[in-house]
Structure formats: structure tokens, C-alpha cells
Design a protein around this nucleic acid. Structure first.
Lengths: 146, 146
DNA sequence: TATTGTTATACTCTATAACTATA
DNA sequence: TATAGTTATAGAGTATAACAATA
């Protein structure tokens, strides 16, 4: 036979919510990586810089809770950012177990650049939706993880 | 001070579409892993079993195109499934470059179990939406990756 | 006892690069 | 030249387990 028996489509898989979510996430991640390659920062790393910038002296545990990460995962990301001197770690709180995270000057600088890149990336993503569609999408997505 | 300066929330990050997509994806992935731990299959692996079941003798390239994966990534997943004897690879097509994938008996059996687990997982995920909300969500997500 | 951080380890997904065989 | 598969390699994210220091 020179033609396949079936049209080679996704079939019933296309109706699985989890599948669609994973595909959408993958597409966005891919665009992000390509668009923000210059910064050499991942989405997750930028989320961490963002929150540390918003909350100076935040502890790793709080970061983990806000981003729903394991302590070890948080450690890995913080460590990578510290290695690049974008983040500094000190222990100056009342609770000697906790670490106080803060952006370095280089961290503030690169985050400012990241904000621009993210805005462009977001524009690419949200251009396909009307304002009300975007609001609806965000509300539905939040209902999954909140 | 005994209280933090800020309430330790996500702030403006919460309005980023990509962030919400990533968080929702992470939450779903986590539930999937916990719920389907017995099968020891990932979402991606099940997607591959699903498509190979639907399209006997599908080639790796076609699989890669349907799931938007790199050839090397596809190879890694197929190899892992072949190692567990859930998938078989032959070269019987007219095009000697292509491999023909097919489920083994064990693959058919475990996929049947996976379908049940996926149905339960999907029920957990979609229970938070009305039928029209779910339809809307899927339509919006497809617009991202299609 | 519980919490915080830390290290070691492992697995999945992803991608790039370079290679072979075939078209 | 282009396509299909293959291997080696690497990096990000995730998680578990075990441990030390502190509360």
C-alpha cells in the first residue's frame, strides 16, 4: 500500500485535558527558550528572581511554598543563581535556620532585561486571545493549581 | 520586626499567562505521578503507547511530529518502552530507513490499565469545571499549540 | 519533635551535534 | 541533498533519602 490505513492524527488523545495542557505548556516553553536565549535564564529561574526581588530576605522555604517546589529543587535553582552571582544568601534573621535571599546588582540588572523579554514573550502568547478570553483562561488555569 | 514587610504573595507574577500555565501543568503532572505510580509510566510514555496503539507500524518521525518532539527525544522514549518490552520495533516497510512501531501484548495490557488510571486522573482534573468551561479551556489551550 | 537547609543520587524530558544508512 | 534513525552528551526540573543545625 502506498497510503497509511489511518490519517495519522491524534484521535481521542486530543480530548484529554491533561494532554492539551502539556502540549500548550511545551509550546510556550519552547518559544520562551528560543526568545530568551540571550539571557540564559529559564522561566523558573526568572520566577525566583522575581519573587526574591519582590520579597527581600525571603527564605528558601517560603520560596518553595510560593512556587510549589520541593526544598531540594529550590536549593538547586537558588544554587545555580548564586553561582552566577545573581542572588546572594545571608543568615541574618532571628531564626538561625533560615537563609535570607536577595538580588545582587547583577541580579537586578538581568531581571530588568528579563522583564522586557517576558513582556515580548507574553505578547506572543496572549496575542491569540481577546481580553475576555485571556481573563477566562487565567481564571481556569488558577483553578487547577490554587 | 516580628512580621515581614510584605504579605509574601505572588504579586504581579500571578498575572503572567505563561506562569499560570506552568503552575497548572506542574500541579497536574504531580497528581498524575502520584495517582499513576503503580504503572510506572509517565504521561509522555502513555501518549506514545496511545498513538502506537492507534497507528500500528507508525514511524518514529511521525510520532515525533504528532507529539512535537525532537527525533532524539522520541528515540529516548521509544527505547525506554522497548526495554520494558511494551513496544516492538521492526523494519518491514518499503522505506528501509523507517522503523515500524507496534505494541507488544504486555504493551496492550498495560495501556488498558493506563486508560483506567487516566480516566480517574482526568476526572480529578475536570471535576472543577462545568462542561462548557472545560470545552472553553480545551479550545483555548489548543489555540496555543496548534 | 518539627523545621530549615544541605548534599547525594536518580530519573524524565529536552535538545544539539555528529554519525550511518537509505532515498 | 534530504530524510530516518542512532548514539553521545548535557542541562533543567523534579523528587527521595539521609543528614546537621536550630527551634
Amino acid at each position: 500500500m502506498s497510503t497509511p490505513e489511518q490519517p495519522l492524527g491524534l484521535g481521542a488523545l486530543e480530548d484529554i485535558a491533561g494532554f492539551n495542557l502539556r502540549r500548550a505548556h511545551g509550546a510556550v516553553q519552547r518559544h520562551f527558550s528560543a526568545h530568551c536565549a540571550d539571557l540564559a535564564l529559564t522561566q523558573k529561574q526568572i520566577s525566583v528572581l522575581w519573587l526574591v526581588g519582590d520579597h527581600p530576605e525571603i527564605a528558601q522555604t517560603d520560596l518553595a511554598r510560593l512556587l510549589d517546589m520541593d526544598r531540594a529543587t529550590t536549593m538547586a535553582i537558588v544554587h545555580a543563581l548564586e553561582k552566577r552571582a545573581l542572588l546572594a544568601r545571608t543568615k541574618r534573621g532571628r531564626d538561625a535556620r533560615k537563609v535570607a535571599l536577595a538580588l545582587t546588582e547583577a541580579g537586578v540588572t538581568i531581571f530588568a532585561q528579563a522583564r522586557v523579554a517576558i513582556a515580548e514573550h507574553e505578547a506572543w502568547l496572549t496575542a491569540r486571545f481577546s481580553p475576555s478570553e485571556l481573563t477566562a483562561l487565567l481564571e481556569l488555569l488558577r483553578r487547577i493549581y490554587c
